[in-house]
């Protein structure tokens, strides 16, 4: 029993960075933009989020933990949003190929993230880490002790770090926005058929820009969450590598729906760590490719079924040229 609870708990812990990465990319793809730079944006978010928390603590000599969390979120969001803004400008305004621009952003962003991470380490004398008190605000549960001590469900419901709850709230809000509001409808229309949306008077350019930039920011928060929770508040580029691509995979697995990312990310988190916890006669490296195999299966399956509501946004990956008719 304890084993199962621990597995689920750790699955959620390891899935949370993916949850943010995936939600951001889902929002982006809903507007018809396939931004393959998630890996880069998550790197940027991780490095700048850590930098924000670290320098805040250094300057104030302690400071408020809640403020540090907010600063880390803001820094990572901004870093990712700037990356996505470059992507948006080149693909939407300058109409370059989305795949190529996204890959360029992946290269650029991993470079920036790694550079900032290494540079901080050089400047600060070999080691960048925040104090244990501050770490607690990032890693411990925001709920009081007695709630967490409820047997069985206490840890599973109240025991997670603050980002898990923020992620769930964001997923619910995003699902409401996309499926239940006029703006969400406009956004989906933009992603499905920009020419139609344009003819209906929707400002396609604005929707594409906003969705991509905000989506990039949300994805980048995922990188920060990885560094501040799983990596223990130190720069760890090896651990972060691959998270962004996994997020791209998870978007497909969740069929572009924010609510699915809540359980989808936990499932992927479980697949990432399962080899440590569940011993089957399969080598651990084969375990680790399961998320990708599962994604391929979902991709193939949805294209076979041809169910309308499970398809990628119709114009995904295509630039929209109003003058091209």
């Amino acid at each position: 029993m304890m084993g199962v609870i621990n597995l689920v708990f750790n699955a959620i812990l390891n899935g949370t960075p993916l949850m943010f990465g995936t939600m951001g990319e889902s929002l982006t793809e809903k507007s018809g933009n396939l931004n393959l730079g998630v890996e880069g944006m998550m790197y940027m978010g991780g490095a700048f989020g850590l930098a924000g928390a670290f320098y805040y603590e250094k300057l104030t000599g302690g400071g408020s933990g809640i403020l540090a969390v907010l600063i880390a979120i803001a820094c990572s969001f901004l870093a990712g949003a700037i990356g996505a803004l470059i992507y948006s400008f080149i693909t939407i305004t300058l109409r370059a190929n989305q795949n190529v621009t996204g890959l360029a952003l992946a290269i650029f962003g991993t470079g920036i993230g790694q550079f900032v991470g290494e540079y901080m380490r050089n400047v600060e004398g070999g080691y960048v880490a925040v104090s244990n008190e501050l770490k607690n605000f990032f890693q411990a549960s925001p709920f009081p002790r007695f709630l967490q001590d409820i047997p069985v469900v206490g840890k599973l419901i109240f025991g997670h770090n603050v980002f898990v709850y923020l992620g769930v709230i964001l997923a619910v809000l995003m699902a409401f926005y996309i499926n239940r509001t006029r703006y969400g409808l406009n956004l989906r229309a933009t992603g499905e058929s920009p020419a139609t949306a344009d003819a209906a008077g929707i400002n396609v350019i604005k929707y594409k820009y906003l969705a991509t930039v905000i989506g990039g920011g949300i994805s980048a928060i995922g990188g920060m969450v990885y560094i501040m929770t799983i990596a223990g508040c130190v720069w760890n580029h090896e651990g972060l590598s691959g998270e962004g691509w996994l997020a791209v995979a998870l978007v497909i697995f969740c069929l572009w729906r924010p609510l699915n990312t809540i359980w989808g990310s936990a499932l992927f988190g479980a697949l990432i760590i399962m080899y440590l916890r569940v011993h089957l006669p399969i080598p651990s490296e084969i375990y680790k490719i399961l998320p990708y195999v599962v994604t391929v299966a979902v991709l193939v399956f949805t294209s076979l079924r041809k169910k309308k509501e499970n398809q990628p946004p119709e114009s995904l990956g295509l630039s929209y040229f109003r003058e091209d008719r």
């Binding site: 470059i86 400008f89 080149i90 300058l94 109409r95 370059a96 190929n97 190529v100 621009t101 360029a104 952003l105 290269i107 650029f108 962003g109 991993t110 470079g111 920036i112 790694q114 550079f115 290494e118 540079y119 050089n122």
Partner: peptide, 21 residues
């Protein structure tokens, strides 16, 4: 840090992609 090469490569790619416009 050697990761500067990725940054500069990225800038080159962005500029050249933009120039196609």
């Amino acid at each position: 840090p050697a990761s500067i090469s990725d940054i500069i490569t990225g800038i080159f790619l962005f500029c050249m992609l933009a120039s196609e416009f």
